[in-house]
Amino acid sequence: MSAPIRIGIAGVGKIARDQHVPALQHNHRFELAACASRNASLDGVKSFDSLEAMLAGAPELHAVSLCTPPQVRYQQARAAIEAGRHVFLEKPPGVTLSEVEDLARRADQANVTLFASWHAREAAGVDRARQWLEEARVQRVDVQWREDVRTWHPGQQWIWQPGGLGVFDPGINALSIMTRILPDEFFLERARLEVPENCQAPIGAELDFTDAAGTPIHADFDWRQTGPQTWQITVETDRGTLLLEDGGSRLSVDGEQLIDGEDVEYAGLYRRFAELIGADRSEVDIRPFRHVADAFMLAERIATAPFHDQD
């Protein structure tokens, strides 16, 4: 068995504690050796107050996972690449397409792995859905991605600032699944963004896409849903109707359940990261991010009520 890949985490927030740390602890290919955060630490792990300090103080690291807000992701990723470390990018991979493309070029020149991760693609039903749709003619797609921002991002202001994406922070998960399972490339025709008067990023989005065959593809993203959360994709085809629910973990066709899976997304991401490092390859698919950029470029903007973290 080869030696473990020693990895450090930058950004010790909710996503790191809930997903990255458990996934790394259960993957024998990795050893969590360090972390970097201005105001948090992990028990039993070397702690630093910045990524730069971690790179300098933990020369044994082979790789870093960047779990920080996207607004600071480019400079951190560039520093890690220049230090010869492999880099795992949380979604979204950055704040602009240009900076992500630049990171991919730099990683290639430095001969290190850059992995732009899309955790929703690792949900239990996604690959089976893709395989099933390969043999179908898609007739209509409807996406409903509705959740409560106060539950998932309590007190977080970066999501409302330029580059924070607003409702596209969860909505990009749906786009990552759509670009994975739909047989044909699609593009945006119309969009409507609802932006709170005191924010720079949308709280709601309605998107109408199509493909070369004229297939209607509608997506509705909303961050104001209370109670049960909705993450589902319905695909009507000539073979029947496919339904992905719970963010892709449950799959059914014409009401017959095919998969009811567990939360395996980050375990799958770290398996893939290890594979890419072993193969000396990068994986930087920016299609989901490009659809978000298209929405910001094309959409009609509607001002809506101010958002406050507390009702």
Results as ranks from 00 to 15, higher is better:
Gly44Met: 13
Ala80Phe: 02
Gln156Lys: 11
Pro70Arg: 00
Gly163Tyr: 04
Asp280Arg: 15
Ile5Val: 12
Ile177Cys: 08
Pro4Gly: 07
Cys199Trp: 08
Arg130Leu: 10
Gly166Ala: 09
Ala123Ile: 08
Lys14Met: 10
Glu197Ala: 15
Gln75Asp: 15
His26Lys: 13
Ala77Gly: 05
Pro306Ala: 11
Ile5Leu: 05
Arg121Met: 14
Val284Ser: 14
Met297Leu: 10
Gly227Ala: 06
Asn198Thr: 11
Trp231Ser: 04
Val284Lys: 03
Leu188Phe: 04
Leu182Arg: 03
Ala303Trp: 02
Thr151His: 08
Tyr266Cys: 01
Gln232Trp: 02
Glu275Asn: 01
Trp160Tyr: 11
Ala303Gly: 13
Thr210Gly: 13
Pro154His: 13
Arg271Thr: 10
Ala219Pro: 05
Pro202Phe: 03
Ala77Cys: 12
Asp309Gln: 14
Leu97Val: 12
Gln229Glu: 13
Val126Thr: 05
Val264Arg: 14
Thr210His: 13
Leu114His: 06
Thr234Ala: 13
Val141Gln: 10
Val138Ala: 13
Gly13Cys: 01
Thr226Trp: 09
Glu275Cys: 00
Ala58Pro: 04
Ala191Pro: 00
Leu269His: 02
Gly278Val: 09
Ile5Cys: 05
Gln131Ala: 13
Glu262Ile: 05
Ala116Leu: 11
Leu258Met: 12
Ala191Cys: 12
Glu283Thr: 06
Leu89Asn: 05
Asp148Tyr: 06
Thr215Leu: 09
Glu262Asp: 12
Leu258His: 06
